[in-house]
Design a protein around this nucleic acid. Structure first.
Length: 295
DNA sequence: TGGGTCAACCCGCATA
DNA sequence: TATGCGGGTTGACCCA
């Protein structure tokens, strides 16, 4: 006999004491546990809940939670009456979906907090304690993980959006400062042209060129720089080098390191990809705009 | 009545 | 090969 069959028949698990799950619940929940649980309800309700119209059970189900759910939980096989067609997991074929009651959901949530992966023993124990099929427990954990991931993605997106907007405003300020410096250079060049007698000695030229190489945000090739600036402030040919040079040293690393810590590594990887592959900026902007009304 | 939520299912993939 | 998981989807249910 398999574990699932044992749970299906309401047999005790060989791995955990019978009060394993109750021990994990808070006193508050113990109080609620005094309310009729799905298991104790079995003795209060007709012994054929699966064949009873769910609408008739809503009044009783309302006792279990704020929302008036239909009575939940597929009862153990031994509770089934007659020789209704049963699927492999003891549930009735064509049965209507029923929401889990508040006690079941709370217990499952507590267990999810303990660990979002479901070991077979825990699954069987939960199934037995909550009067659900082991498959229902597994499905609930799968769906719960999916919901958690969705929430996490929403959080990551919000963090990323704030960081991007901060970075963009910083970039705008630097662009403005760059333009101002270029204007000053233009003025100096104009003055230099009007005074051709001034000669720069070789030492000065060398230091000047070195400086221009080291501080790449000031490009003395005015024609090229201004053209690039006019067409697009973030023209990637020049914009990227400008971007890399103008952002404070390590600020990008800090930005990425400061992103939301998540258990799965993918979002952090995506962060890197997003910033490292900024060639397709139009796509990034479109995505950003598209997801603006995420909430 | 349309949209949101959730249990349940299906399919492909990874792994022991 | 059995099992579990993730992603996507379906259908029941609830609510404004």
């Amino acid at each position: 006999m398999s574990l699932e069959q044992m749970a299906c028949n309401g047999m005790a698990s060989p791995f955990f004491p019978p009060n394993f799950l109750l021990q994990m619940q808070t006193p508050h929940e113990d109080h609620e546990q005094n309310q009729p649980s799905s298991t104790t309800l079995n003795t209060l309700l007709p012994t054929t809940p699966c064949t009873t119209n769910p609408q008739d059970l809503r009044g009783m189900a309302a006792l279990l939670g704020k929302r008036s759910m239909s009575f939940s939980g597929i009862e153990p096989c031994e509770e089934m009456t007659g020789d209704d067609d049963l699927s492999d997991d003891c549930s009735q074929a064509g049965e209507k979906k029923r929401r889990l009651n508040m006690v079941q959901v709370r217990t499952l949530e507590k267990n999810f907090e303990l660990g979002n992966k479901l070991e077979p023993e825990r699954k069987m124990q939960l199934a037995r304690a909550l009067g659900l099929q082991p498959r229902q427990i597994a499905i609930w954990f799968q769906n719960r993980r999916a919901r958690w991931k969705t929430k996490q993605l929403e959080k990551d997106y919000e963090v990323l959006k704030r960081q991007f907007e901060a970075l963009k405003s910083e970039n705008d300020a630097l662009q403005a400062h760059n333009k101002k410096l270029q204007a000053e250079i233009m003025a100096l060049k104009g003055r230099e042209a009007s005074e051709p007698t001034i000669n720069l000695n070789k030492e000065t030229e060398g230091s000047c060129s070195n400086r221009s190489e080291n501080s790449s945000e000031i490009n003395l090739d005015i024609s090229r720089t201004s053209a690039a600036t006019e067409t697009s402030p973030l023209n990637l040919q020049h914009g990227r080098s400008f971007f890399a040079a103008s952002v404070r040293p390590g600020s990008m690393t800090q930005l990425l390191q400061g992103s939301a810590k998540v258990e799965h590594g993918a979002p952090e990887e995506n962060l890197c990809n997003m910033f490292c592959n900024m060639d397709d900026q139009s796509a990034f902007w479109a995505w950003s705009e598209q997801h603006h009304s995420f909430h």
